[in-house]
C-alpha cells in the first residue's frame, strides 16, 4: 500500500531522514514511534506531501506520489494542534473538504451528520464555533474532518498528546475501533510507547533519522533488535558484569559478561521457578499503583527492578533482604 524507497529528506544541509525503506500494508494500523527529533514526523509529512524528498520515491497503491501535490493525494491528516479553522463552525470544519470537492449540499449534509454520529458530536455541537468545544471534542472534530473524506490513508500526528490521561485512553480505544470499522490504512506518529503498543498492528521505531526496528508490538517488545529499542520501549533492567557473572555461574547461559544484558522488569519475579536463577539483594524502594507494586532491589552494585501483581498480601518493606529470579532466556544482549 505505502512504500518508502530509499528516501532521503533534508532541511537545508541537515539530513533529517537518511535512506528510509519501509512498507505499510493495506488496512494496517502502523505507528512511527520514537523520541522527538528522530524523523518520524518528517517521514509522515513526506508521505502527506508537505515535504519533498531530496532522494528516493514514495509509492502509494503502486503510484509514485513523490511529487504529487498535497491536495491530490487523498490522504487524511490529523494534526497535533488540530488546526481547526477558528473562523468556522464545527459543521463547516467537517464539511470543508466536501465543499472543496463540490459535492451537492444534500450529500455534504448527509455525510457530515453520518460522521458526526460516528464520533459522537451532536447537532447542537455541530453549530458551535470550534473554540467553544473542549479539547477532546476538538480532537474528535479534527478526526471527523479527516475521515469524512474517506481517504485511502489516514495520518495522525501525535493526535492525543494535548489531552489528559483518562481522555487519552478513552479516545485511543475509540480510534482503534473506528480504524477497524473503516478499514483505513492508518499511520500514527507518537513518542508514547504505550499508545504505540496498544494501537498498532505494526510499529517502526525511529532513531536519529533511521529505523531501528519494524515489527508487531509483540516482536518489538519482546525481541527488540537493538539496545535503543529495548531501552526506549517499556521499563528495563540493565545487567552489568557482576550480575551476569552470577547468572553464568548458576546456569550455563553463555552470556557475554563484557556486554550489558537487558531484561524487562516484569519478567523478573520473586518466587522460584524452574530455569530461573536467583540473585540476592535488599529492597530500597517500592511504588504501589493499585494493580502492581514496583520494587527496586539493590543487588551488589547493581539495581534490579521487578513487578508484583497485587494479591492482597503484605508488601516487602525497604531494607528487606530478598531474592529476585530471572530467566536467562529473557536476557537480551546486543
Amino acid at each position: 500500500m505505502i512504500k518508502y524507497e530509499q528516501v532521503e529528506i533534508k532541511y537545508g544541509n541537515f539530513v533529517a531522514i537518511e535512506n528510509l525503506n519501509l512498507e505499510v500494508r493495506e488496512g494496517e494500523f502502523f505507528t512511527f514511534l520514537g523520541p522527538s527529533g528522530c524523523g518520524k514526523t518528517t517521514s509522515l509529512r513526506a508521505l502527506v506531501g508537505f515535504l519533498t524528498p531530496s532522494k528516493g520515491k514514495i509509492i502509494v497503491g503502486g503510484d509514485d506520489v513523490t511529487n504529487l501535490p498535497v491536495e491530490k493525494r487523498n490522504i487524511g491528516m490529523v494534526f497535533q494542534s488540530y488546526a481547526l479553522f477558528p473562523t468556522m463552525s464545527v459543521y463547516e470544519n467537517i464539511a470543508f473538504g466536501l465543499k472543496v470537492k463540490k459535492l451537492p449540499k444534500a450529500e455534504i449534509n448527509q455525510k457530515v451528520r453520518a460522521v458526526a454520529a460516528k464520533i459522537q458530536i451532536n447537532d447542537e455541537q455541530l453549530r458551535k464555533n470550534v473554540s467553544e468545544l473542549s479539547g477532546g471534542q476538538q480532537q474528535r472534530v479534527a478526526l471527523a474532518r479527516a475521515i469524512v473524506l474517506e481517504p485511502k490513508i489516514l495520518c495522525l500526528d501525535e493526535p492525543l498528546s494535548n489531552l489528559d490521561a483518562k481522555l487519552r485512553i478513552e479516545l485511543r480505544r475509540e480510534l482503534k475501533r473506528l480504524q477497524k470499522d473503516l478499514g483505513i490504512t492508518t499511520l500514527y506518529v507518537t513518542h508514547d510507547q504505550e499508545e504505540a503498543l496498544t494501537l498498532s498492528d505494526r510499529i517502526a521505531v525511529f532513531n536519529n533519522g533511521f529505523i531501528e526496528q519494524v515489527g508487531t508490538p509483540h516482536e518489538i517488545y519482546n525481541h527488540s533488535s537493538s539496545e535503543f529499542v529495548c531501552d526506549f520501549i517499556g521499563d528495563i533492567n540493565r545487567l552489568e558484569t557482576g550480575i551476569l557473572k552470577k547468572i553464568n555461574e548458576q546456569e550455563q547461559a553463555g552470556l557475554d559478561i563484557h556486554k550489558t544484558g537487558f531484561v524487562r522488569i516484569e519478567r523478573c519475579i520473586d518466587t522460584e521457578k524452574p530455569g530461573y536463577v536467583s540473585i540476592e539483594g535488599v529492597v530500597i524502594d517500592k511504588e504501589f499503583d493499585g494493580v502492581m507494586t514496583k520494587y527496586t532491589v539493590k543487588c551488589g552494585d547493581e539495581i534490579i527492578k521487578y513487578l508484583e501483581k497485587n494479591d492482597g498480601f503484605q508488601f516487602y518493606d525497604e531494607g528487606d533482604e530478598i531474592s529476585v529470579f530471572i530467566n536467562p532466556k529473557d536476557i537480551m544482549q546486543f
Binding site: 502527506v48 491536495e71 494534526f79 497535533q80 488546526a83 479553522f85 472543496v100 474532518r145 479527516a146 473524506l149
Partner: peptide, 23 residues
C-alpha cells in the same frame, strides 16, 4: 498546520487562502 490541514483535505492554494487564511 491550518494551511496544511486545508491542503490535505484537497483544497487548492487559492481556495485555502480565500476560505481559511484570509478569514
Amino acid at each position: 498546520n491550518m494551511e496544511e490541514a486545508a491542503k490535505v483535505m484537497g483544497a487548492k492554494p487559492f481556495y485555502t487562502i480565500r476560505k481559511v487564511i484570509l478569514p
